[in-house]
Amino acid sequence: MMPPDPASNHKPLIAITGATGGLGRAFAVECASRSWDLFLTDLAPAPLAILASSLETTYGISVVTHTCDLTDPSSRAQMFDRIRDESIRFWGLINVAGLDHEGPFFEQSDRQIRSILRLNIEATLGMIHELLPFRAPLTPFRIINVASLAAFYPMPVKATYAASKRFLLDFSLALREELRGLGATVTVLCPAGMPTTASCIAGIEAQGWMGQITTRDVGRVANQTLDAALAGRVIVIPGGVNRLLQILGGLAPASLVARIIFQRWTSARQKRNWISPAIPQVET
């Protein structure tokens, strides 16, 4: 646990994006249980208010919420204006916000593809870039970026998503070196599927025993990742099976891994009554 700095009146304050989603909520609760104050942001105001008031009641912390569309630079700018105006200082930033539109690339709309890039990459980089000047002095600034186990492989049916997470993984590793001199650390979380929503649980179910053994509960993931960030660790892969998969995946040629993953996904999706995609073709 981070000892409070006796020289400052400020309590640890952590910013969390995507705070009302399954993993974001778990991070928020885990931080709150360590008595850290929170700055929570997400798209919708109502869920933020519900979570904030419950965390304040239960853990006696202060929570600031800010509704923000992170994919919109002007919405982000408004948030940072507020941070500047209120002189808020942060001990850490957890970039959880991210999204995927699962399905064959060819069937996705331009808008869907763009939203993945905007949120997973642009917004995450924007958050780090714009929040760094507001880090608290005299204390190490902890950044946690949520990538995915998908960051290690080319993943058919999640092609854009997996590549965006690969971007975050490589970016985080590079940034970490750049920030050493500033007393900031970067930790990148690469989890497998987590049972946060009914559709996630259905997806895990469809993968059968593989889904069972690769799945880790969010609370444990959040707890383990915070400890890792405090220890300044680089990559967190929750679950022994997942670490093994990452190592094995690294040994095989990427093209072969992609083929195996596609076969596995196809059979999993068929179990969910999902017909193999008919890729639309232009008449020749």
Binding site: V29, S54, D217, G219
Partner: peptide, 11 residues
């Protein structure tokens, strides 16, 4: 079976 957090952040 899996840990689910409610919108209020409670198991």
């Amino acid at each position: 079976y899996w840990m689910i957090l409610t919108a209020e952040g409670i198991e």
